[in-house]
Computed example of a mutant assay.
Amino acid sequence: MAVTISKVDWQDAEEQLMAIRREVFIEEQGVPEDEEIDPKDPQCTHFLATDENGKPVGTSRLLPGGQIGRMAVLSSQRGTGLGGELLMVAVNYALEQNYSDIFLHAQTQAIGFYQRYGFEAEGPEFMDAGIPHRNMIFNKG
């Protein structure tokens, strides 16, 4: 299945981005809606993955401080490599923009996934939206 990943503006793609995040975080993972939705989205760089029919199937965002977040792939697309593609599009964009640090807060069950793409866990585990996480830093070297 051919998937296209595009950099999109929040103002233009909010409905598509939120549909994915609502399905993955709120419905599947039980994250409270008031914790999923935050005021940072308009300041972020967003990436949207769409299938060959133009259906939104994945998303990620990059905050101005270099944090990658809200990585979400619909269940029908998991295991296809799309998550890694979305992650690396965000990382490469951050590198092109000369971000000094690139980091994320990974759900602990996903640490191995992020390690495969050059991220290293650091610091203690912490809870976010009732889910255990760890800070991970991208190793540019």
Rank of each mutant, 00 (worst) to 15 (best):
M1H: 12
M1N: 08
A2F: 14
V3M: 04
I5V: 15
S6R: 15
V8R: 02
V8Q: 03
D9P: 02
W10Y: 15
A13L: 03
Q16V: 04
Q16H: 09
L17E: 07
A19F: 09
A19H: 10
I20D: 05
R22E: 14
F25N: 07
I26C: 08
E27D: 11
E28K: 08
E28C: 02
G30S: 07
G30M: 07
V31K: 02
P32F: 13
D34Q: 12
E35T: 07
E36W: 04
D38K: 05
D38M: 05
K40R: 14
Q43V: 12
Q43M: 12
Q43R: 08
C44W: 10
T45V: 14
T45Q: 06
T45W: 11
H46F: 06
H46Y: 10
F47V: 09
F47S: 00
A49P: 08
A49E: 06
T50D: 00
E52A: 13
G54I: 15
K55V: 15
P56D: 06
P56R: 13
V57S: 00
T59H: 06
T59I: 10
T59N: 01
L62K: 02
L63F: 13
G66V: 14
G66R: 08
G66K: 11
I68Q: 01
I68T: 05
I68A: 00
R70Q: 11
A72W: 04
A72Y: 07
V73C: 05
L74A: 09
S76T: 14
Q77R: 09
R78F: 04
R78I: 06
T80A: 01
T80S: 15
G81I: 08
G81T: 11
L82D: 10
G83E: 07
G84E: 04
L86G: 01
L86Y: 09
M88N: 12
M88V: 08
V89K: 15
N92I: 04
E96R: 00
E96A: 06
Q97R: 15
Q97V: 06
N98H: 12
D101F: 05
I102W: 07
F103Q: 00
L104F: 12
L104N: 08
A106V: 12
A106P: 10
T108W: 04
A110N: 15
A110W: 10
I111M: 08
I111P: 00
G112C: 02
G112Y: 08
G112V: 11
F113Q: 10
F113V: 13
Q115K: 13
Q115C: 05
R116N: 12
Y117D: 01
Y117L: 02
Y117Q: 02
A121F: 09
A121I: 07
A121S: 11
G123K: 03
G123M: 05
G123Q: 04
E125K: 06
F126E: 04
M127R: 04
D128H: 11
D128K: 11
A129R: 12
G130R: 08
G130F: 05
G130Y: 10
G130E: 06
I131M: 03
H133P: 08
H133S: 07
N135T: 15
M136C: 02
I137V: 15
F138E: 01
F138I: 12
N139M: 04
N139T: 10
K140N: 01
K140E: 02
K140R: 14
K140I: 02
G141Q: 14
